[in-house]
Simulated scan of single mutants.
Amino acid sequence: MFHSNFSLRRVAVAASLWLLFSGGVALAEDAVTFRAAFLPTANYLTTIRTTGILEKELAKVGAKAEFIGPLDPFSAYNAVTSGSADASSTGTGYFVNLSAQKSDWVAFALEKYSGNSQGVVAAPGSGVTSLKDLYGKKVGIDNPGATGDYVLNLAFKEAGLDISKVEKVTLDTSSFASAFASGQVAAISSYDQNFANAVATEGSKVLVTADQLPTANWSIHIVSREFAEKHHEALKAVYDGLVEEAARAHANPALIPDAYREFGASEELAKVVAGFDTPKILPLDAAAVADLNRLGQQYVEFGFIEKAPDIANYVVDLSK
């Protein structure tokens, strides 16, 4: 009797182990949690967090979503590199920079727009009415090699002007508005809230917007290479959720200015944001890779990086 029960137990244990290991891939995928370190900007990885869309898509493959933030960009990227999160968002320029450093990030969704949310704006009372008027003057940018610096360099190149005749001043997010309004800088080159706030300032003048330039600077959603390689189905579900969120924004354009209001934007700023192009979500296919490789060459030309990376090595195409 004892021997019989022991044999049955052995069979049961063996069967349980077989089920566990033979279904290992599915069970591992079932246990996946996609942890998004989101930013206080109205990109779709941020706006989707309150909709249930991502949770719905991930549930189809037995996975879950967790949102961490809002975090400033550096804290968000540190959260991923430290293993506390799996994904975040950035600009394509910063992504090119990361790729040039052979980082462990890969891009999985491109959030593309016209570029009218980025540009160079002259401060009130500066007397500046053209890009050339900025010679010998200070221009506020977010960080060297970041979006504002890129737009400024590209604008000067396209106008046939010498960027070395401008003094660039690095400003943090909290000081953009005061530096602009007080005349500490003659102009700012920036994007999103900083750009919108400058446009909304009485007496300011928009000198150029990125949609007037051959830009390849958009938003992009990035994930750790480890997550992308281990959890393709879950990442595809996230991509599908972002596509659905983009469709929701196109059906209701108020979604994006409302998101900025949530993060403290004034009504004047929200009105400017409402005029920005509504982004699309696109895969990192051959066309997107070509655009980002072109951006990499521009980054080399502007002295931001020494050598352009082959972006094909840093993306996953979820349209396949």
Rank of each mutant, 00 (worst) to 15 (best):
E262C: 12
P70M: 06
A186W: 00
S117H: 09
L45G: 09
D310H: 05
A85G: 04
W218Q: 10
P70F: 02
G160N: 09
P70E: 08
F38P: 01
L134C: 02
L255A: 14
P144W: 08
K230R: 11
V13T: 04
K271C: 11
D240L: 08
T33V: 13
D258T: 13
V199F: 05
D285I: 07
A107C: 08
I256N: 02
N197K: 11
G115L: 01
S4E: 15
G93Y: 01
A228Y: 03
G115K: 01
A254N: 12
P309N: 11
E167W: 08
H3G: 13
L8C: 15
L213Y: 00
T47C: 08
T278N: 11
D192G: 12
L39Y: 02
H232C: 13
D240H: 05
V169N: 00
A179M: 10
L45C: 09
S7R: 15
L8V: 11
S174Y: 14
A181V: 11
T147E: 10
A76M: 06
G62I: 02
A59N: 12
G183P: 06
A65C: 10
T90K: 00
V289Q: 09
A186Y: 02
K230F: 09
V206G: 02
G52T: 04
G145Q: 00
A26C: 11
N43Q: 10
F74R: 15
D149L: 01
S82L: 13
K112V: 14
A107L: 06
V121I: 13
F2H: 15
E267G: 05
K157V: 08
G303Q: 04
D162Q: 09
V206S: 06
D317S: 04
E202G: 11
G275W: 08
G83H: 10
K236M: 12
F195S: 05
A28M: 15
K56I: 06
R35I: 14
L292Y: 07
Q118K: 15
T47R: 07
N217Q: 13
Y191N: 09
V25Y: 12
A63M: 05
T201P: 03
A177V: 14
V316Y: 04
V96R: 00
N97T: 13
V80G: 01
A246N: 03
G69P: 06
A146K: 01
G52D: 08
V185G: 00
A76W: 00
N43A: 07
L58K: 08
L295F: 09
L171C: 02
T50Q: 14
S82A: 14
L154K: 01
F95Q: 02
V128F: 02
F38M: 10
S114H: 04
N313Q: 15
T41C: 15
A87G: 06
